[in-house]
């Protein structure tokens, strides 16, 4: 297990181009063979990693390592993701100018750049079902308590819908608040978490 964790996360460190969110799907693919982490758990890890300080990929690596094999697993996964950086950076830092001016290196980088959008899109697909149709829907307990007739009316509509309508509203609100009103992402995420907590499941 430790070896699996180490090699998978080293792969992530070696091929993870394009920063945090582009790496998410790479991590998800790499751990499928050996770790029994459900999409819902994985999405929880990514979500928490976005509101905690520190690099996203490191946070997710620590989470998954810990879930799969305890504290030592967390250490192995985290070191695995950071290790390739030593090798790559120690080579590149000796020839910074050559690296920046090399046509082939620049070609590689410009080749991967648009593909990064596809990588993040694939990450979005991985997160979608747990995010808007996951187990434990927001507000169900409250609807039950208020005693709305579940066969009819808004309460029934929300309870019987195939996707979690409250979650979709939160998703839309998040996008609008950050994209249109330039609110700080972390603040928006914390507010959305609080709304979820107030409503319960």
């Amino acid at each position: 297990m430790y070896l699996n964790l180490f090699t998978s996360f080293m792969k992530v460190g070696l091929f993870g181009f394009g920063g945090g969110l582009a790496i998410v799907r790479l991590i998800y693919d790499s751990i499928q063979d050996f770790a029994s982490i459900t999409p819902q758990e994985f999405t929880n890890f990514v979500a928490i990693s976005q509101i905690t300080p520190g690099p996203l990929a490191i946070n997710v690596a620590t989470f998954i390592g810990n879930e799969a094999a305890g504290i030592l697993g967390a250490a192995v996964a985290t070191i695995g993701v950071a290790l390739p950086a030593f090798i790559i950076v120690s080579i590149v830092s000796r020839m910074l100018d050559k690296f920046q001016n090399n046509k082939i290196v620049q070609g590689m980088l410009s080749g991967i750049k648009p593909a990064t959008i596809g990588l993040i899109g694939a990450a979005a697909v991985t997160l979608t079902i747990p995010a808007i149709a996951g187990e434990g829907r927001i507000g169900m307990g409250i609807i039950d308590k208020i005693g709305v007739d579940t066969a009819a009316g808004i309460g029934g509509f929300i309870q019987n819908s195939p996707v979690d309508i409250v979650s979709i509203l939160i998703l839309i609100a998040t996008i609008v608040l950050i994209q249109k009103f330039n609110k700080r992402p972390i603040a928006v995420l914390i507010v959305m978490g609080c709304i979820g907590a107030l409503l319960g499941v």
């Binding site: 976005q50 979005a124 997160l127 995010a131 939160i170 928006v188 709304i195």
Partner: peptide, 12 residues
Amino acid sequence: MAGLRAAALGLV
């Protein structure tokens, strides 16, 4: 967590 998952997808 459900709220955070939805918001996290929003960030993506």
